[in-house]
Write a protein that binds this DNA or RNA. Structure first.
Lengths: 218, 218
DNA sequence: ATTTGTGAACGCATTCACAGCT
DNA sequence: AGCTGTGAATGCGTTCACAAAT
């Protein structure tokens, strides 16, 4: 009983949800797989396959009802209610994430940031999130029913922080440190590695400027 | 003549490179596909396939020479020389990225940040990167031979900024705004979407707490 | 004995093509 | 006619298994 929904599908659902919010804003009541696909730069079949995973709520000849689809996807993604989030690491990146406008507060609420530095503990971020000491992490997670942890500490501390978050009971962690921390199987760690992103771009540049002789030259 | 190297491979090369740097630091002179795979949590065959894309420089019975492999991968990824980077958007995220320690300056150098706000233009980030007006973007890119652009502006401005970066001659853009900007085919835009990352995690939580009745129940 | 390099097998995800509703 | 839902086909990436090399 592994993952019911393939992960590429889940990630696209997130895109659909955003588009649906905009359509809803614009007063559209239905949308076709073709439209949805066009705005997300995808194949219409892809969209239909993705949505069909959860049973058919499209109307043939018409399309999908925006508000219904929106609710269903929000539920699948777990953002039908506000998810509380803690951030460990109140450095530049941590505080930036804490104040990030993209998490509009309806689906994700940053409860607090955590750090060990005396300079930072006791302060607040620009938008008013408190910075607490890491030894308050477990209590905060428990009392405020936090579901998600974000790791924004240097590589050297990341594994320890992941252990602490796991010990505090979190099952889902987003890691920004440039390492692949290990975690018990019930804890999912997803990494965003900025250097990998940049290097995957520079590799394209390198390959364009020097199209190398390919090994199989027959 | 599309992409010579599959993109998943490129991303793993980036991981290998980091491990190789550590091995080099630790004084190791050779490494096997098995070791490399273990530290990256991958299959040894995967590692060998990845490395074989560029012709065999492994020694059978021994493994790969750390320093040689490191140089080769660095070259493939285009980080055998310093790549200059500009960041558009000097808000929380932009400045955090500008000061990010993970880009150690050897492979990536943040040349400047750009913004349109009078409050920000003329200032410097904590680590001393200048914040310039966006209308200086093109000149800076040209004069300093900048290769990469990072977009750290709100969703509403992202498309315009991508257009400006493309017009300035950049061919590779890393976008943090929650939109999929369009760009001419010679310009590669790669997006890091924080909300997608978070929602792909919460979807796991949602699916665990409520394992729904699957449609195909025969 | 050990480890690479690689064809073959496998599995997963995307795309196609069309039957089935509205 | 228009659009969804889906089996079939395709393509791609990963893993297996083993021959070749040191």
């Amino acid at each position: 009983m592994a993952r019911r929904v393939p992960s590429p599908t889940t990630r696209r659902l997130s895109l659909y949800l955003r588009v649906l919010a905009e359509l809803s804003e614009a007063g559209e009541s239905t949308v076709s797989s073709r439209e949805l696909a066009a705005t997300c730069d995808l194949n219409p079949s892809q969209v239909r396959k993705d949505l069909a995973h959860f049973g058919g709520f499209g109307k043939r000849g018409v399309g999908y009802e925006v508000s219904e689809l929106r609710e269903v996807i929000a539920k699948i993604l777990g953002v039908d209610r506000t998810q509380r989030v803690v951030i460990v690491g109140a450095g530049n990146l941590g505080t930036a994430l804490g104040d990030y406008q993209g998490f509009d507060g309806r689906s994700f609420e940053i409860v607090a940031l955590f750090d060990v530095s005396d300079d930072k503990v006791g302060t607040r971020t620009r938008s008013g999130r408190p910075v607490l000491h890491v030894n308050e992490l477990e209590r905060t997670v428990r009392e405020q029913e936090v579901a998600l942890g974000i790791v924004a500490v240097p590589a050297a501390s990341a594994q320890r922080v992941v252990d602490q978050l796991a010990a505090a009971g979190l099952r889902a962690i987003l890691n920004f440190a440039p390492v692949r921390p290990v975690a018990p199987p019930e804890v999912t760690v997803q990494s965003v590695d900025l250097k990998v992103e940049l290097e995957s771009l520079t590799s394209l540049l390198a390959e364009r400027s020097a199209p190398p002789p390919d090994p199989d030259a027959d």
